[in-house]
Design a protein around this nucleic acid. Structure first.
Length: 811
RNA sequence: GCGAGAGUGGCGGAACGGCAGACGCGCCGGACUUAGGAUCCGGUGCCGCAAGGCGUGGGGGUUCAAGUCCCCCCUCUCGCACCA
């Protein structure tokens, strides 16, 4: 071994050797359990990886390496989420083509991941923009289509002017596009494809209970799904025979207090029922509501506005005619776009009634007999009053009674409503997976037969989005014009492409058999490797990718393709690494730190260790390069330790009991902490042990201690430990070693320090044999000089003893 | 506004209700050096010469014992934002 640790001299050498010997190609040994660790599919951006991204990849690499050593068949693959707007926009900006930039960027990501020693099985690399991959994305589209889960609908959709495409609801954040948070979205009326994710709402919600995910993520999904139970009812419109207003309510028990109704301005009934006298005012209001930006309209602080339509509905419970208003606080996209207003029990309706002088009946009073408030709505549950057959009932019972009555009289039924809408998947852009659908004058909408897949994305030089709402693909006659698979007549292709999230809704299955060509995945391989044992990624995907992938998995389960209903039973979110200035690392801010620069300066192992050591894996922190100096220095000290041992001829040695015990305890700690993803404290334990080892001679250390140390460090610092391992005389890679076991007997302490507290303050410490009888410890404590001094003659009132820990004396 | 998470030395962070500050950075002192962003040794929460006292965002509480549990408040981050 060289005198000094020089990472550059060993890291590349070992990386090449591992690649040559196929060290990290996935093994499938039936005698071992499997472990599938996966990071979220990255989009390979032109900027390459930063040290922030590594905060995900390095820890997963440690887990993969550790699990392999601990006896598992490990699947740890990597691929590229290459279709989609970021790739297309980047290429447009640079005047290049994504088919050229994507492979280049992916190659750069791969180079960087190899540079830091991440052990992926590159033989399984996949790319969602490659025809062998998107063929199967199309296959899944057809599966959903066949199962009635893909449909086309005309409606007003979110449009981002910068993306020049329609977006799904989830992709709208605070009224702006999720990629362009400064660009407000607008509405555009277009016919679009949807996946019926709402059909899975209940299961997506219920199955959250059985998976091990961070609670905040589960909560976000629950809120996003937004299930609420209630009733759907309908009141007839007076003077319009056959017309009725259908509405959803969570408080059917308040029907007797319904003094007016409100429709969303876009509600289809509005033009029909508006009276001539009100028409002008109503039309103005509707036009104004349309013009309003979504941000304004979503504002909860804004005063409520509305207009009377001149029409009345008949409240079938009170038999009174009640006015029908329109107001923009009622949203067309939720429930039926219409509400019954119970101003006595709903604060929004209360405010509206107050403003427009509408009646405010009280039909629910507090159960404790106090009067209902008059300055606001009483929104809690209570007792029904002024409510006909409901009088005297508790809210819960009254809800059931109204539902029963409504069913019997065929005016409604209990129902469940969701905040979640269907997933809009059409994108009017070029760089995506073509939707395998053909339109025929005779046969209508015809799916492309499976044996004609993939529908190849044509080459285009000018793929600039049009802005008209049509995909650039519409300008390629060779693509658009085709024949109908059914009748053979002339037909046209769907020109929209699929939302990129479709590609990432099944990629975790493709890794099980990435080269399989008889289906999206080999059933046997899928059954063996899936589901993913540990899934790791950023919290920003809480309600998009994670919800979509869960839905697709349930569809696959229903279709008998897989045996599990949840793709990611265990999910963890890595903490965000901010730049040193506390801001997001970005090229435009000029604060990006690259792994390339860090590796050049300190080596891959030092960089890896700092990624692990800088803080808890799941917590955010700021990048601080000074820390790499520390881990680099640590590695140099380990180098010196091993070098001295090797130079001493690698003595078997005769370690003291303490050395043995410390080694065994460290094996226990490091194992436990890696299992719990506590990499920072796992490494701290190794640093601690090094500080102890440094005081010993090679003879006092011995082979067991040194080799255990090297093996424990191997998943975190793979290069230096490989160098050590060979220097210690081994022919095989350290990464093929078994994870060390500890002897529980050697992790127990013989003597312990017991603290003595007097009135809660530490006044003395005793060193005693572990397991010393309580009486002896108490007696000893009371005879000690510092204890006597602080007692000052006072008699203990109470003495608490925690075995081997403390004596607490109260005076 | 509602919901979730987080506030610990100069800094990153440790700590089954039981010795607050492990480990590391930085800093101070020393050794070896022509030199040091190398290496090694020692020190380092605050106040105090010391004995000792004070300390985990602030204020209460439970407990022999609270960073940890309970209540109120402040700050920051994230999510949702009229969902009937």
């Amino acid at each position: 071994m060289k005198e000094r640790y020089e990472p550059a001299a060993i890291e590349f050498k070992w990386q090449q050797e591992w690649e040559r010997s196929n060290l990290y190609v996935t093994r499938e040994d039936p005698g071992r359990p499997k472990f599938y660790v996966l990071e979220m599919f990255p989009y390979p951006s032109g900027d390459g990886l930063s040290v922030g991204h590594l905060h995900n990849y390095v820890p997963c690499d440690v887990i993969g390496r550790y699990k392999r050593m601990a006896g598992f068949n490990v699947l740890h693959p990597m691929g590229w989420d290459a279709f989609g707007l970021p790739a297309e926009n980047d290429a447009l900006l640079k005047g290049l083509h994504p088919k050229e930039t994507v492979p280049r960027y992916a190659a750069n990501f791969k180079r960087q991941l190899k540079l830091v020693g991440c052990a992926y099985d590159w033989s399984r690399e996949i790319n969602s923009s490659s025809p062998d991959y998107y063929k199967w994305t199309q296959w899944f589209f057809l599966l959903l289509y066949r199962r009635g889960l893909a449909y086309r609908a005309l409606g007003s959709q979110w449009w981002c002017e910068k993306c020049r495409t329609i977006l799904a609801n989830e992709q709208v954040v605070n009224g702006c596009c999720w990629r362009h948070t400064d660009t407000p979205v607008s509405k555009k009326d277009l016919e679009q494809w949807f996946f019926k994710i709402t059909a899975y709402a209940d299961r997506l919600l219920a199955d959250l209970d059985g998976i091990d995910w961070p609670e905040p993520i589960k909560l976000m999904q629950r809120n996003w799904i937004g299930r609420s139970e209630g009733a759907e009812l309908a009141f007839p419109v007076v003077g319009h025979p056959g017309r009725e207003v259908r509405f959803f309510t969570t408080r059917p028990d308040t029907v007797f207090g319904v003094s007016f109704m409100v429709l969303a301005p876009e509600h289809p009934l509005v033009p029909e029922i508006t009276s001539p006298a009100q028409r002008h005012e109503v039309e103005n209001y509707v036009a104004q509501a349309r013009r309003q930006s979504e941000i304004e309209r979503l504002s909860t602080v804004k005063e409520k506005t509305g207009v009377f339509t001149g029409a009345y509905a008949q409240n079938l419970f009170t038999n009174r005619a009640i006015p029908i208003w329109i107001a923009d606080y009622v949203l067309m996209g939720y429930g039926t776009g219409a509400i019954m207003a119970a101003p006595g029990e709903d604060q929004r309706d209360f405010e509206f009634a107050k403003k427009y002088g509408l009646e405010i009946p009280v039909v629910t009073v507090p159960a404790d007999g106090t009067p209902a408030p008059s300055d606001r709505a009483f929104t809690e549950y209570g007792i029904a009053v002024n409510s006909g057959f409901l009088n005297g009932m508790k809210t819960e019972a009254a809800i059931r009674a109204v539902c029963k009555y409504a069913e019997e009289h065929e005016i409604g039924r209990p129902t469940v409503s969701y905040r979640m809408r269907d997933w809009l998947i059409s994108r009017q852009r070029y760089w995506g997976c073509p939707i395998p659908i053909v339109y025929c004058a005779k046969d209508g909408v015809v799916p492309v037969p499976e044996d004609q897949l993939p529908v190849i994305l044509p080459d285009m030089t000018d793929y600039q989005p049009s802005g008209t709402g049509r995909s650039p693909l519409a300008n390629v006659p060779e693509f658009v014009n085709t024949t109908c698979p059914k009748c053979g007549g002339s037909a046209t292709r769907e020109t929209d492409t699929l939302d990129g999230f479709a590609c990432s809704s099944w990629y975790f299955l493709r890794f099980a058999s990435p080269h399989y060509d008889a289906g999206p995945f080999d059933k046997k391989a899928g059954d063996y490797w899936l589901p993913v044992d540990l899934y790791v990624g950023g919290a920003e995907h809480a309600v998009m990718h994670l919800l979509y992938a869960r839905m697709w998995t349930k569809v696959m389960y229903d279709a008998g393709l897989v045996r599990f209903t949840e793709p990611f039973p265990v999910l963890r979110n890595q903490g965000m690494i901010w730049a040193a200035d506390g801001q997001k690392m970005s090229k435009s801010r000029g604060n990006v730190v690259t792994p390339d620069a860090m590796v050049e300066k300190y080596g891959a192992d030092a960089l890896r260790l700092w990624e692990l050591f800088m803080g808890p894996f799941e917590e955010a922190t700021n990048w601080n390069e000074e820390g790499v100096v520390g881990t680099s220095r640590y590695l140099s000290r380990v180098w010196t330790l091993v070098r001295r041992y090797v130079e001493a001829g690698c003595p078997q040695g005769n370690p003291s009991l303490e050395t043995l015990k410390r080694t065994h305890k460290t094996i226990r700690t490091v194992t436990d902490h890696i299992e719990r993803l506590r990499f920072n404290t796992a490494l701290a334990a190794l640093m601690d042990l090094l500080n102890y080892f440094q005081k010993l001679q090679p003879e006092q250390l011995g082979r067991f201690a040194i080799e255990s140390y090297v093996v424990l460090l191997a998943p975190m610092a793979p290069h230096i430990t490989e160098e050590f391992w060979r220097a210690l005389g081994h022919q095989e890679s350290v990464h093929l070693e078994s994870w060390p076991h500890f002897d529980p007997a050697l992790t127990r302490d013989d003597s312990v320090t017991v603290v003595v507290q007097i009135n809660g303050k530490v006044r003395d410490r005793l060193t005693i044999d572990a397991g010393t009888p309580e009486d002896d410890v108490r007696r000893l404590a009371l005879t000690r000089e510092p204890v006597q001094r602080h007692l000052a003659g006072k008699a203990p009132r109470k003495v608490i003893y925690v075995p081997d820990k403390l004596v607490s004396i109260v005076v």
